[in-house]
Structure formats: C-alpha cells, structure tokens
Amino acid sequence: MSALLEVRGVRKSYGDRVVLDDVSLDVAAHDVICLIGSSGSGKSTLLRCIDLLEDIDDGVIRFDGSEISDPRVDPREVRRQIGMVFQAYNLFPHLSVLDNCTLSPRRVHGLSKREAEDRARDLLATFGLSDHVDKHPDRLSGGQQQRVALVRALCTRPALLLLDEITAALDPELIGEVLTIVRQLAERGTTMVLATHEMSFAREVATSVCFLSEGRILEQGPPAEIFSNPREERTRQFLRRVLPS
C-alpha cells in the first residue's frame, strides 16, 4: 500500500538557519505519527511545510500519490483534504463556535447551511461541546477552545489531520480533555501527524514516533522501541530530561 503522505529529503531554512535538513517521513492511512523533540527541533516547521504554509527549499512532498510541493499546485486544493490545529487555537473571535465550525464546510466545501450545521452540531455533541454552540470562543476555557478548534478541523472531513502542540498552551488539568478527543480519533482510525510534548500520550496512541533534533529525524520507530530502547545517544538524553524517572 502506498503511503498517504510521503515526505522525501525536505529542507527548509530561514536565511542561514537550517530548520529542516533532509527530512523523510511516510504516513500511511490510519497512522498516528508523533513528532517529539525539544523546542526548535523543527516539529512545527515540518507540519507547516506539509500544510504548504511554508515553501520548502528542497525535497519532495507527496500527498495521495501526487506531488504537492510543486509550485503549480494550488495549496487550497491540498488544504481541502488536510486539517490543521494550532497551539494557540486560532479560533475566529468574531464568530460563534458554530460559525467557526461551518465557515469552511460552507464556503469551501459547498455544503448547505443546514448540512454544515448538522455536521458541526453532531461533532460538537460528540466531544461534549453541545452547551457552547452559540457562544463566542472567548467565553470558553482554553481546553474547550482547543476542542472547538479540533472540531473545526474535523468538520471538513480531512484525510489527514496535523496537530501542532495542541496541548502546549493549556493548564495541566485541561490537557486531559483535549487528549481524550485525540485518543478517540486515533481509535477511529483518523490519520494524524502530531507534534507533542506529552510523552506518555505519544507512547499510548502513536503507531510510530519520530525524534527530531536540529532539524533532522534522528530516530523513528514504534513507541515501545523509542521509549524503552532508543538507539541514539541524543534521544536517550532527551527522554531522560522529559520523562519522570
């Protein structure tokens, strides 16, 4: 089976600073790939490059068999099929929760107002947000906002979901409610690539874990292997720092 997403030798630099260096990654349907590594290791940049929010400086990215890193590809066509959730939620403060969730389905995917709202209400209910449908985002807690942001991404039924450290801005007691959703998605077979600092969560849901260091994927493997028996010295150092002994 060919991979849903294929990243080959991707390089990205800002001026002289090389942020991604020869990064390759395969994501098959129903995979859950966790990117771990210290801040500045290139996790977020990789996700942004996949969503074509940044132009890459070399390498190839293929999605569903066709190259999307070609300048002639319309990024919007690609993003119709990829969902992204950001660390700072990035909900639109002037729209209600429901309008946040129906914006793209109605304007981009051509759903009728009714269809889009039904779909959004369904998903919001699934994730325990029924009471907040008509509120504006600023009225919600951080955890609720991030759950809305996840629902907003899911409302377009993406084939691939990119999650960029979605719990990094949350209080510890709110992290759980967001991770529960991601866990449910993983169980349902949603294909995801997520950058995360939640090691125990990565160990639990990931089909594969990538350790990034200085813009390179230093090591990749099933979570059991990476967390219990890392091959690289730098992975070991990193895990010693972040894992409670």
Binding site: R11, D21, D57, D58, G59, V60, S69, D70, P71
Partner: peptide, 15 residues
C-alpha cells in the same frame, strides 16, 4: 555543503 537537487532547481525555474 548542501546543493539544491535537480527537482528543487526545476521548482525554482517554475517559480
């Protein structure tokens, strides 16, 4: 030292 690949050079031409 990194040198742009064939593909990247073609992409630059397209851009």
């Amino acid at each position: 030292v990194w040198a742009p690949s064939e593909r990247e050079q073609e992409r630059r031409r397209i851009r």
